[in-house]
Design a protein around this nucleic acid. Structure first.
Lengths: 218, 218
DNA sequence: ATTAAAATTTAAGTCTGCTTAAAAAAACAT
DNA sequence: ATGTTTTTTTAAGCAGACTTAAATTTTAAT
C-alpha cells in the first residue's frame, strides 16, 4: 500500500483512539495537510478496499483490516523512535520527524529485528504503547515517575517527558536513556531529591527532573 | 526530489562509475525495471533540471549537481548497510534490500548521526566506499584479506565477502563483525591457518575464511 | 554499402493523489 | 424554525511516473 494510504489510516487511528477527535474527512484532511475533497476521495477508495467504512457525511470507521494496517505503521513509527532515541543524541522532536518518514519504508522483517534488538519494548520514548507484530497493544502503562520510585530498587527508564534540548543533553551525558537500568540509591522525601546510581555513577536529581523521568520496575 | 529521480541518478552513477557500463536510457531502464520510453522521458526531464546532459541517442552524463545527488543517495544506502549489518543479524543480501528503501527517506541530519555512530567509516560491508557528507570518496581500498595479515598486529574488520547464511551465522556468533577489532595471534603459513584474538577469545580460521574476511590496519 | 536487427524516441493513454470551484447537506445561532 | 455559516461532496482538471505501440535512428552483419 502507498504512503498516502498508510498515512490516511494512521491519521484516522490516531484521531480516533488517541486524540478522541472525530474522524470525518475534514479532520483527517487537516491533519494530513490535504484538501477536504482529497480526503473524501481517499475515503471512498479505501472503503472499496475494505480498509474503512464510509457513509456520506458520517465519521470514518476503520475496519479490522484497516486497524491492522494502522497498527502496523504505528508499530514501525514507535520502534524507530525507540531505536533512534536509544542510539543517537536526538530529541523527541527529531526522532518523531525521522520516524514519520522511515515508518513507510520498513519491512515487517526489519521491524521485528529492531524490536528484538530493543528487547521487545512495550512503550516508546514518548510513553506511547508499541503494538506487537500481531497488532496487540499493552494499554495499561505501568511506569511511574522517578519521584515515586522506591529506595534500593532497580528500574528501567521508560520515558523522558520533555522537549527541552538542555534536558536531553543532560540526560545523554549521564546515561539517562530510554531502556537503561538505574538503581535508586536514596529517596530524600523531605528535600524532594532522589539519588540514583547508573553505570557506577551517582546522580542527585531534584523534583524538576524526577517528575518527568518515568521508569518501570524490572 | 522524488524516489524515482533519486533512483534514476543513482542508477546512472552506478552503471557509469562502478560497473563501467554504458549509460544510454535502455541500460538504465533495464536496471530500474521500467520501459525504455519511461527512461527517455525521465532523461529529458532531468536534463531540464540540470541533473544530467541529454542528447538524442547518446549516453546520459550526470552533471556536477546530478553526481552530487547520486553520491548523497549512495552515501545513505551504504551507511544504512553498515548500520544494519553491525547491529542486527542480517545477511549482505538483506541489508541491501532494506537500504534500498530507507536511503530515500533519510535526512542528511540522520545520515550524519549514523555515520558518526559508526565512527565515520569509509567502506560499507560490501567493501564499497561510503561518500562523506561533501560527496567525497576514498577511492583506494587499503583493506587486505585476513590471510595476508601480519602476526601480532591489530586490524579492523572491513568486509565479509560472502552471501552464505552459514558463514554469516558463524561470524555473528564469534564477534566477526564489520568494524570490530581483532588481533592476529599467529599465522601458520604452512597450514594456511590463522589464529586470531577477538574479545579475549581465540579463533583458528582456515583459508576458506581468511580469504573472504577483509581487514584494515588500525 | 546495403540491409536486417536492435535500440531509442515519439505519441497516446493510464493510474494515483492531489488541486480548485461549485453544489449539496449539515450544523449552528438567534 | 429559519437563515447563515461550515462542512462535505461532486466535478473537472493537473502533474508525476509509468505503460504500449509505432516511428525513427543507430548498430552490426554480410
Amino acid at each position: 500500500m502507498s504512503v498516502a494510504i498508510e498515512n490516511f489510516v494512521k491519521a484516522i487511528y490516531n484521531n480516533d483512539i488517541q486524540d478522541h477527535h472525530d474522524t470525518k474527512p475534514g479532520n483527517i484532511a487537516k491533519k494530513l495537510g490535504i484538501s477536504n475533497a482529497a480526503a473524501t476521495d481517499m475515503a471512498k477508495k479505501l472503503a472499496s478496499k475494505n480498509l474503512l467504512q464510509y457513509e456520506k457525511y458520517q465519521a470514518l470507521q476503520l475496519t479490522e483490516e484497516g486497524t491492522k494496517m494502522a497498527l502496523n505503521v504505528v508499530r514501525k513509527h514507535r520502534l524507530w523512535e525507540a531505536l533512534l532515541f536509544k542510539m543517537f543524541d536526538m530529541s523527541l522532536h527529531e526522532i518523531h520527524r525521522e520516524a514519520e518518514l522511515l515508518e513507510h519504508e520498513t519491512s515487517d522483517f526489519l521491524a521485528n529485528k529492531i524490536s528484538e534488538y530493543l528487547g521487545n519494548p512495550k512503550f516508546d520514548p514518548h510513553g506511547d504503547p508499541i503494538p506487537n507484530a500481531d497488532g496487540e497493544i499493552t494499554t495499561e502503562d505501568t511506569s511511574i515517575a522517578l519521584s515515586q520510585s522506591a529506595e534500593g530498587k532497580a528500574y528501567i527508564i521508560s520515558r523522558l517527558m520533555s522537549d527541552d534540548k538542555e534536558f536531553f543533553d543532560f540526560c545523554a551525558q549521564n546515561g539517562l536513556k530510554y531502556g537503561n537500568t538505574i538503581t535508586i540509591a536514596k529517596q530524600f522525601h523531605k528535600n524532594k531529591m532522589t539519588q540514583i546510581s547508573i553505570n557506577n555513577n551517582t546522580i542527585l536529581l531534584n523534583e524538576d527532573f524526577t517528575n518527568i523521568i518515568y521508569v518501570n520496575e524490572i
